[in-house]
Design a protein around this nucleic acid. Structure first.
Lengths: 157, 157
DNA sequence: ACTGCTGAGTTGGAAAATCCAACCCACGAC
DNA sequence: GTCGTGGGTTGGATTTTCCAACTCAGCAGT
């Protein structure tokens, strides 16, 4: 937790990708999020389904709560037991996880996709990233950098 | 490179998110990708713009090349110099980076977004994840798990 | 010929994160 | 009273990461 990618050396870009990774970029963070978003909100099931060591999971859960991505809620008074619920920021990570899954299905996983979602329209869910304004796909070549690290970019050409 | 999140303990879920993270989930990997996709394909500019140590960047570049995400290309014979170009799999990570950026803008970065893209439609680019089949947003509650780790799920209710 | 500069790394040693198994504590059930 | 469960913590070994310094090769200037 000392030097995050975002806050390291001299002239690294100020960048929300790095800032996001400083919060959810550590090992196991996104796997913990996966479980929590699937509804496995208790320590035991998170440990079982991710396969991570209990100590680092404990640490990750703590940092994710501190970062406001999860909320730790007491669900049983007497043997004090807690569960970890996604906050709004936590739910907002779902598209990232689905996009990672899609990419993994396509370029890493051998054989058929191990996990399949059905969209409310009835089809198997595959993500597409579109421009929120016009709805057109935001694929490569369809976008241009306007400003980077607070510095406006000059159009090439 | 020994124990990736994907290949660890006993009963961890078989999952393309974990598989994807085994490839691009290490520290600095996605920041390297960011630079390469921005066109900074040479070691020096990757080091300068990410702020990562040269040794781990060197290691990351090697693993990303081995994973087929980048391609190492000789661009100068005599002082042997190489550059790192994204493969198709590398370009396919762009939506993930943009989604991370959006999330970071919204929930982590203080103040105005440091990086702004313009879509070909003229608007500032903000991503939306939609179902590839019907085009409707794939937000939470709009999808249902069909199969997980090779095991079909029973609909709740 | 000598000096410095650039690009692309490698090396060495310190510091931090991760791994793993084992342990702890509180409770409820048998 | 012993077992099992949930939710962790502790100790010690192993791996990564950090950082600065170094290398090596070619070119540019003087």
């Amino acid at each position: 937790m000392t030097a995050s990618p975002a806050s390291s050396a001299s002239s690294a870009r100020e960048c929300s990708i790095a800032n996001a990774l400083a919060v959810v970029g550590e090992r196991w963070s996104l796997l913990v999020l996966r479980e929590v978003l699937l509804g496995n909100v208790r320590f035991e099931s998170i440990a079982a389904n991710t396969g991570g060591s209990r100590d680092i999971l404990s640490a990750r859960l703590r940092t994710l709560v501190e970062a406001g991505v999860l909320e730790r809620r007491l669900y049983d008074e007497h043997p004090r037991r807690y569960e970890y619920l996604p906050t709004e920021a936590g739910w907002a990570l779902q598209p990232i996880l689905l996009a990672l899954m899609d990419w993994g299905d396509r370029y890493v996983t051998q054989g058929p996709p191990p996990t399949v979602w059905e969209h409310s329209c009835g089809a198997e869910l595959h993500l597409e990233a579109v421009c929120a304004a016009c709805g057109e796909p935001a694929s490569s070549g369809q976008s241009r950098l306007l400003r980077l690290g607070g510095v406006d970019q000059v159009p090439a050409g």
